[in-house]
């Protein structure tokens, strides 16, 4: 494999971290297509990306946990499932040839594009009924909502659905080396009826352990190269940090339109390369 100069690695990673943080998609979704376009082998790109996911998600999770927005019990229950999913997913990536990986990655990008395109802002309502299993898991919580100006009480429900669905989200994360935060939020939001703020922050906590589980498989397979991983970890973290600072200043609509175009282009490009490309 041709090694990319470190300068390039840093530049691509900063850009990916920046775009990832601003869009809320995470760095990997942009990073992996960009690295493969620059000539890196897709498995090494996936392995390096999932290590960088540990850094960005842990950094964000630290702040959210201390803001008391994260539901630790929901996180630590679901982590069991995402962890196993990530190990299975990463083991498949290690075994298969690059071509299907390109195609799956492209399809996942297009699905995320579809989800973002169709996204409507539905107001959150507390679960009407909480099943016995979820009650046994003690998924109650409460946080102070700054915008609403009062406390929000909630209780997670349908944990029997959330667990298996989280295995799927972890599987995609391990398979493709991404945080798959969008999928996790979907499970927490729609599946378990948690308020949006609790969903995003709790998903961040889960992503760290999920990414570590995936990393363990790539490490054992010898796919993690410190000379490649280190600049990517640094770059993505710096980019994500700048992204969260800038995010506040840009208008939401412009940002969203830009990402929808980027996502569509990258998704289509990955599928096309997977099908016809000279890999």
């Amino acid at each position: 494999m041709d090694t990319l100069p470190v300068g390039w690695l840093l530049l691509i990673s900063v850009a990916a971290g920046f775009v990832g943080a601003m869009s809320g998609m995470g760095g990997g979704v942009i990073l992996i297509p960009a690295l493969t376009l620059a000539g890196m082998d897709i498995k090494h790109a996936i392995a390096a990306s999932i290590v960088s996911v540990i850094a960005t998600s842990s950094g964000a999770a630290a702040a959210y946990v201390r803001d008391r927005l994260t539901n630790l019990k929901v996180g630590m229950f679901l982590e069991m499932f995402t962890m196993l999913g990530a190990i299975v997913g990463a083991s498949i990536t290690v075994l298969v040839s690059p071509r299907p990986l390109f195609i799956i990655f492209g399809v996942v990008l297009l699905v995320v594009w579809g989800a973002m395109y169709l996204q409507r802002n539905v107001d959150w309502e507390p679960a009407a009924h909480v099943d016995r299993f979820s009650r046994w898991l003690e998924l109650k919580g409460c946080y102070f909502d700054q915008a609403a100006g009062h406390d929000i009480h909630y209780e997670g429900t349908r944990a029997y659905l959330g667990g298996p669905m989280m295995f799927g989200a972890g599987f995609i994360a391990g398979l493709l080396g991404i945080g798959a935060g969008a999928l996790k939020v979907l499970v927490l939001d729609l599946g378990m009826r948690l308020p949006p703020k609790v969903s995003t922050t709790t998903s961040n906590l889960i992503i760290g352990v999920t990414a570590l589980a995936g990393t363990s498989v790539y490490l054992a397979a010898g796919l993690i190269d410190p000379g490649l991983a280190a600049p990517i970890i640094l770059g993505v973290s710096v980019g994500a940090f700048i992204g969260t600072v800038v995010l506040v200043r840009l208008s939401n609509m412009a940002v969203r339109r830009f990402f929808l175009v980027v996502l569509l282009a990258l998704g289509a490009e990955m599928v096309i390369r997977g099908v016809w490309g000279n890999l």
Partner: peptide, 9 residues
């Protein structure tokens, strides 16, 4: 320069 080239495979 910044490059590192070592393996932990």
């Amino acid at each position: 320069h910044l490059g590192f080239d070592y393996t932990i495979a």
